[in-house]
């Protein structure tokens, strides 16, 4: 495995520092929310994790398309890395969303649009990983992975819209509510908004760093697999 390039080493440090800074902002800078008290502070990292999940989702879909066009294994490695990272960050999003929901709405789970779609997305990711696991030929594995990524990527937005259409007809959306609604709205002070954007920025940096590391892992794995295929 090639040694870490300087840029990556710098990113490592930057990511850690930004993460600590973001924590600091959440606990020391952002004001306390009126109705929910401390538990609202989950919001900042929850949204940031969801954002990173989205980035990974888009990266995976793009990598899938590019692989089918170019047939370069490199894009398959990128696609797998993106799926894995998106999987991890969406799991965090879902779990913390549930933890936040419990004290505020007295329920561990709400079948609201975003949570449900995120869960379905996780199922698609797991299916993707199981699909790859069942194929030994690297070329076929890459092709099928790309195809399933594309099919999954198309279906998720449609799923999101479908669930939203259903909820709209049951619960008319109340815009700008100050009491807790299903979408968990609360009044955001400017410091809260700034903290949120800083968290988004932090996690974007973390995403790039982790993505890069995971791609390196993928390249090493490809090397090992190629050797094994040659020998056996």
């Amino acid at each position: 495995m090639k040694p870490q390039p300087v840029a990556l080493k710098v990113l490592n440090v930057v990511s850690v520092l930004l993460f600590l800074a973001a924590l600091g902002m959440v606990f020391l800078y952002a004001p306390l929310e009126e109705t929910m008290n401390y538990v609202q502070k989950i919001f900042y990292f929850h949204v940031a994790n969801a954002w990173v999940g989205m980035l990974g989702f888009i990266a995976a879909a793009v990598a899938g398309v590019v692989y089918l066009v170019k047939h370069d294994q490199k894009w398959d490695i990128i696609e797998l890395a993106a799926v894995e990272i998106s999987l991890i960050f969406f799991i965090t999003t879902i779990i913390t969303g549930s933890i936040w929901a419990r004290p505020v709405w007295n329920t561990w789970w709400t079948w609201d649009t975003r949570l449900t779609t995120a869960t379905i997305l996780e199922m698609i990711y797991i299916a993707y990983l199981l699909l790859r696991q069942g194929i030994e030929d690297p070329d076929r594995r890459a092709r099928f992975g790309a195809v399933y990524t594309i099919i999954g990527a198309i279906s998720v937005p449609i799923t999101f819209l479908s669930i939203r259409i259903v909820s709209r007809t049951i619960h008319p959306v109340v815009i700008g509510a100050t009491n807790g609604t299903a979408t968990g709205s609360f009044n955001m002070a400017p410091q809260m908004l700034f903290t949120m954007f800083f968290a988004l920025f932090t996690f974007s940096a973390i995403f790039v760093t982790l993505f890069w590391h995971r791609i390196r892992l993928g390249q090493l794995a490809q090397q090992v697999e190629q050797l094994k295929l040659e020998e056996f």
């Binding site: 379905i120 199922m123 299916a127 199981l130 069942g134 099919i151 999954g152 279906s155 449609i158 799923t159």
Partner: peptide
């Protein structure tokens, strides 16, 4: 390798809409 078993796993999340 997993054949039959894999189809529902692949299909159901995508067919939810």
């Amino acid at each position: 390798r997993t054949r039959d078993v894999l189809l529902p796993i692949l299909l159901f999340p995508v067919v939810i809409p």
